[in-house]
């Protein structure tokens, strides 16, 4: 048997609002559904909302802060997801933790999680300041998420540079909120434009999907409901690729062009 090794994966973007937390939540659920013991760690202490997206906000009793202070055990702070027992959330403490939290503290937390999980997903705060540095120090690999916009790509590029200096390897890319139609009309950066600049292996393409907003507000990640929406499929494919499975990437030029997609669009427009 190979010795147990936990993968600590940082999910970061540089720019805010591109979908770090949404990816963390959905990827966490998707991995758990595939039988991987997964912990999601909210490293965004200033503006925490991973718990919201997972619908676990009201079940938080202790946080990472109490664990670090030694006033509770790790098991007490971990919030297990009801439908997906393979998934647990370690909530961020209060925003004042930012003042004293050190990279060693993050490493300590991740070290405590290691024995009981296969994958730890670290939801990184936006920006490249202390919060980012703390989060990076605890990770060995990273997923950079970006949208096909110049500002998001520029920030992602900066973050990749910083990850490289921290020796994070491998770094993979998820391109979020892709609009195939706009890409086809060259109104948006194409997948090639983005990968040209960032030069990272593409782990997933997630199309713009209104269902993401619905699920976020409900606190039920898309991957949880077994939804067949395109984004849900993309997230679970990201999880499968992360596990080393060879899942072909969709071609954005062909997305939403098939007969089924056309039919479903027709039905939607007729009814609503």
């Amino acid at each position: 048997m190979t010795p147990h090794r936990t993968r600590n994966i940082l999910i970061c973007s540089g720019k805010g609002g591109v979908g770090k937390t949404t990816l963390t939540a959905n990827l966490g659920i998707a991995l758990a559904r595939q039988g991987v013991r997964t912990a999601v760690l909210d490293a965004d202490f200033g503006l925490r909302n991973l718990d919201l997206l997972l619908g676990l906000e009201n079940r938080i009793v202790f946080t990472a802060q109490e664990v670090l202070a030694g006033s509770c055990r790790l098991e007490q702070a971990l919030v297990k997801h009801k439908q997906e027992p393979n998934l647990a959330l370690l909530p961020a403490g209060n925003p004042r933790m930012l003042e004293w939290l050190k990279p060693e503290d993050m490493q300590a937390i991740v070290g405590m999680l290691a024995p009981s999980f296969d994958v730890v997903l670290i939801d990184c705060p936006a920006g490249i300041e202390d919060g980012f540095k703390n989060a990076v120090s605890a990770a060995q690999e990273a997923i950079v998420i970006t949208t096909p916009e110049v500002s998001a790509v520029r920030d992602a590029d900066r973050v990749i540079g910083l990850l490289n200096t921290h020796g994070i390897q491998p770094i993979q890319l998820v391109l979020n909120r892709v609009r195939p139609k706009m890409m086809a009309n060259q109104e948006m950066l194409s997948v090639n434009d983005v990968t040209d600049i960032l030069a990272l292996p593409l782990l997933g393409l997630v199309v713009e999907d209104e269902q993401v907003i619905v699920s976020t507000n409900r606190g039920e990640p898309l991957t949880l409901s077994g939804s067949h929406s395109p984004a849900a499929l993309a997230y679970s494919n990201v999880a499968r690729r992360l596990q080393g499975e060879d899942v072909p990437l969709p071609d954005p030029a062909k997305m939403g062009r098939g007969l089924r997609a056309k039919l479903s669009r027709l039905i939607k427009t007729k009814i609503f």
Binding site: R154, D155, D157, R158, I160, G161, N164, A199
Partner: peptide, 8 residues
């Protein structure tokens, strides 16, 4: 050797 990224 290596790509210079934004900010470098």
């Amino acid at each position: 050797q290596g790509t210079l990224r934004s900010g470098d």
